[in-house]
Amino acid sequence: MLSCKEVTHLLSEAQDRKLSLTESMQLKLHLMVCKGCTNFSAQMDFLRRACRGYLTRDTPRDDD
């Protein structure tokens, strides 16, 4: 069983490369039983959406 710390690394790397089959299986098994890492995973996904939305968001005019 992977440790939570190892899982945070895999969840981050999953944003940058394709995980191996073994890595994906180990990750899935861990997430099934670990609420903390499940939340961490959702937060990684949110960070990506926030960064991608950063440029396109509506910004108020400073001279309003």
């Binding site: 939570c4 710390k5 903390g36 959702a42 937060q43």
Partner: peptide, 11 residues
């Protein structure tokens, strides 16, 4: 190397 209860990520 598992989360401490106080710092485990919350939703």
């Amino acid at each position: 190397a598992h989360w401490s209860p106080a710092t485990r990520p919350v939703a």
